[in-house]
Design a protein around this nucleic acid. Sequence first.
RNA 1: UAUAGCUUUUCCUAACA
Length: 364
Amino acid sequence: YKVFEVMEETGVAPDVVTYNSLIDGLCKVMKVDEALKLFEEMGEKGCLPDVVTFNCLVGGFCRDKRIDEALELLQLMYERQCAPDAVTYTTLMDGLCKVGNVDEAQNLYQRMVKQNCMPTVVTYSVLIHGLCKESRMDEAYHIKKDMLTKGCRPDVVTYNAFINGLCKTGEVDKASQLLSEMFRRGRRPNVVSYNTLLDGLCKEHKVDDAKKLFKEMTVSGCAPDVITYNTLISGLCKSLRLTEAQNLLRDMEKQGIPVDVVTNNTIIDGLCKVNRVDEASELLRTMRGRNSPDVITYNTLIAGLCTHNKLQEAHVLLKEMLEKGYAPDSITYSSLVKGLCMATQDKDVHQLLKEMLEENSIPE
RNA sequence: UAUAGCUUUUCCUAACA
């Protein structure tokens, strides 16, 4: 904005690329309405929005789950004779998939084809990803066939979507096979491919296989990232193998990979699970700056405290959350409700519940 | 020079027992 103002002051006319960059930036930080203002301003200043302008806004609305408004923009594009391109349609299809409307995404795909707009590998991957998320693997395979007949080869992301789908439907073996297939087809798995499969293995309680795969990935020259570590740490924590998880923390430090909020949240959860709630609380206290706690941090610890019948402390944390401006969500409350239901010291529970209601710290 | 897709953390989650 500052540069933009200077440009205006010094009489350097912003062009469509200037506007587009700014609009996209605003959309990416969820300020779509502000972006929309700029969009209108462009029109007034005689700078015609182009397809990229529209695409950025469509993406902004989709990210904000405001699909109807995104579709209105598509309509506006037709009216203004600004032909939507593959990015427009793909962005919308992705938005539809992410709100759980894969069927509508497929309808839009048909429309795109009717308008003679060529789908790209991204278009297909979006559909495949949407279908895989819904465990509609057969339909996903069908799309893959379609794309191949049209001379469009699946890329790493396409494969990753399948790996994820297979893991989520409990077919980790098939997912592993797909990883091998990637090598054969000249599509080297990337760090996401490995992370996805690692998570699949962990969720099937095959943590040792995951550890093996972790070694394999480094051997094949794929560098682990913070998500790789988080995934493994989570798997180990779920299996109550805290020591190994903490070893991985050391490993991260050695590799120069900084931990993030997720890492800490995962460890907090792990500590709670093995009844080391005090250490978990201590960890929360160390979280500041770039690694400030988030709602999940609090939820995790509150759930841990509730599970171990430390309702007073959970209550204190709830108050802390509110004081610090974090908005408790349905998970916060269900943890607390569960804790209150299972509580063993009945008098205290009633007192606590009364307090919480009086503070308005829990909704009716 | 600007726009689209994949992975990790918190509560609950079937059936049977």
